[in-house]
Structure formats: structure tokens, C-alpha cells
């Protein structure tokens, strides 16, 4: 364990960033298991293209980052909980009807 810690020290891991990457990692693992258990059907929702479950996840993550960056740019990062709530609602809408 100490050896591994020594090897990855240059990457500057901290608890919040580790939680972020673990969440991303387990989401991908979960999506893979879900896909194996119940293969997704490509569908056309309100988005102007046919999407799979993975596409909607990708778009959700990308647009979440976009919403947060836009908020930071426009409002200099005040009340960061608000863009997270907006992004969460948007993520849900995208996953359900996208």
C-alpha cells in the first residue's frame, strides 16, 4: 500500500478527487452490469438524435460540467449548489426523456 502511495503521489490525490473518480468508475461498472443484465434499446427522445443509455450518460456528464463552468464564468462561482441542482434536474430529464 505504501509502495502504491509512493508511486501515485505525483498525481496529487485528495479525498474529494478520489471520491469523484471512484463515483465515475463505479457508474461505468454499474452501467456495464446493467447493459449485460438488460441490454438497452436505442431510442429517439427530445434530443435531435437516436441515443443509447451510454450516450445519455455521456451527454448528462458533459452538460453537467458545462452548466457548472457556465455558472462559474457568469456568477464567479457564488452559490455553487444552484448549478448542481439545475444539473441534477437536467440529468434526470435527459436520462428519462432524452
Amino acid at each position: 500500500m505504501e509502495w502504491l502511495e509512493e508511486q501515485v503521489r505525483w498525481m496529487q490525490w485528495s479525498l474529494p478527487s478520489a471520491i469523484f473518480f471512484l463515483a465515475l468508475f463505479f457508474t461505468l461498472i454499474g452501467m456495464s452490469i446493467w447493459e449485460g443484465y438488460r441490454p438497452c434499446v436505442r431510442r429517439k427522445g427530445f434530443l435531435p438524435m437516436v441515443t443509447t443509455r451510454g450516450d445519455r450518460l455521456f451527454l448528462g456528464i458533459i452538460s453537467t460540467i458545462g452548466i457548472c463552468m457556465l455558472w462559474i464564468g457568469l456568477f464567479k462561482g457564488v452559490l455553487m449548489i444552484l448549478p448542481l441542482v439545475i444539473a441534477a434536474v437536467w440529468f434526470f430529464v435527459l436520462a428519462k426523456w432524452g
Binding site: 490525490w13 485528495s14 474529494p16 478527487s17 462559474i72 464567479k76
Partner: peptide, 27 residues
């Protein structure tokens, strides 16, 4: 990504910065 979430200067220990670096970048 890890570097972007820290105040990181050569020769000093990194300090967690949250989104402050991004705020600095976009302003």
C-alpha cells in the same frame, strides 16, 4: 484533474482548492 483541484506550486505541498482554480480561470 487532480492538479486543477489543488493550489499547487513547485516545491510546496498541495492544498485542496475546490473549484477556486476554475473560478480564477473563467474570470
Amino acid at each position: 484533474i487532480n492538479y486543477s483541484l489543488h493550489y499547487s506550486f513547485a516545491g510546496s505541498a498541495p492544498e485542496f482548492a475546490g473549484l477556486n482554480n476554475y473560478i480564477e480561470v473563467f474570470t
